[in-house]
């Protein structure tokens, strides 16, 4: 698609960095013993997973400007899709994963179609309410196990069941695939008509509509896509942890992770979700393990202070910091995106 000269150059650089990164990640998967079972492997897998989660949220929140705190619902539906297939039906998770993702998309469209009438904080609080409703209903829904949750059986490592114990290479490869999928989808949307429409809606819904953009259609498409991706991440989460129960997946805490990582990295940017995850996840994991001796909760105190610091100093997140120092200029339309610039 033809673009202004300057923009084309940036796309090329970004494209090269993207392919380079994918190559490195893929290489690590094939070199035997590169991943292993160390704690660092776990942190790497989590970074890729949370980056994918954040990027899925970014589709709706960053590019389309609809700040939702409800993504843990879709995450949870995906997780239960995988969990039900493995535990209740005793089969491989893959069909369950697909079913969960499709169900999440369907649910997302159903609940957002009325919610998109709301503006600003009202919409945000409506999404809180949705998470609470789903979370509590799941707790009493016996068909999915209710409060007891679903526990995975002990099985041999395999790709069929996507379960590993002695080595994380399988999980890592799956995480890279998920990461490539979600980021790849966003990359392709960025340059397509849908991407431009989304950004137009974000900048000013009424203006976009006056130019002929069907904002409802655009928002619903963004929502469905975002929910689908979030559900895939949820399925991975279930497979990784050998268990699903409602408070693990459908909770405000989990929803906040989707939001925080994206905003701390840089909302509405391609790299923001990855940067946010690359900083927050190691911080979260390493402070918990190494600061435990300082007393309970010290890691969380640091986490809280970091969030405050970032929001006070640079609400555009890490991408904002980088822009300040002239690195990774980013695309001209996304460089100026701040948390909450979205039209209320």
């Amino acid at each position: 698609m033809a673009e202004a000269g300057g923009a084309v150059k940036k796309t090329d650089t970004e494209g090269r960095i993207w392919l380079g990164l994918l190559a490195v990640l893929a290489l690590l998967a094939v070199i035997p013993g590169a991943i292993g079972n160390a704690f660092h492997a776990h942190v790497l897998v989590l970074i890729l997973l949370y980056a994918s989660m954040a990027q899925s949220w970014n589709i709706l929140g960053g590019y389309c400007g609809q700040i939702s705190f409800g993504h843990s619902v879709f995450f949870g539906i995906g997780a239960y899709g995988a969990g039900m297939a493995m535990v209740r039906y005793g089969s491989a998770p893959w069909l369950g994963v697909l079913a969960g993702a499709l169900a999440a998309s369907a649910v997302s469209v159903l609940i957002s179609w009325p919610c998109f009438k709301l503006r600003g904080h009202y919409f945000a609080i409506a999404t809180f309410a949705v998470v609470e409703i789903f979370g509590r209903l799941f707790l009493v829904w016996d068909w999915i196990g209710g409060a007891l949750g679903l526990d995975y059986p002990i099985m041999d490592d395999s790709w069929t069941h996507f379960l590993w114990s002695s080595d994380k290479t399988g999980y890592y490869t799956g995480a890279v695939a998920l990461f490539a999928l979600v980021f790849g989808v966003v990359r392709s949307i960025e340059g397509r008509r849908l991407g431009y429409y989304m950004r137009a809606v974000r900048e000013g819904q009424e203006t976009a509509e006056s130019l002929g953009v069907n904002s409802t259609h655009v928002k619903l498409t963004a929502m469905a896509l975002s929910a689908f991706m979030a559900a895939l991440c949820g399925a991975f989460f279930a497979q990784y942890n050998y268990r699903v129960d409602p408070p693990m997946v459908v909770s405000l805490d989990m929803s906040m992770k989707f939001v925080l990582i994206t905003i701390l990295g840089g909302m509405g940017t391609f790299w923001g979700p990855l940067l946010g995850a690359a900083v927050l996840i190691p911080l979260q994991e390493y402070t918990r393990t190494y600061l435990a001796s300082l007393g309970a909760g010290v890691d969380q105190v640091i986490y809280g202070l970091l969030i405050i610091f970032m929001m006070v100093r640079q609400p555009r997140g890490i991408m904002g910091f980088l822009a300040e120092f002239g690195i990774l200029g980013g695309r001209s339309d996304s460089a100026g995106k701040e948390a909450g610039d979205a039209s209320p």
Binding site: L260, Y303, G304, L306, I308, G340
Partner: peptide, 14 residues
Amino acid sequence: SAMAPLLATFGLSI
């Protein structure tokens, strides 16, 4: 920003 105070207070709550 509209989100920055909300997230900053979220950090404060933690």
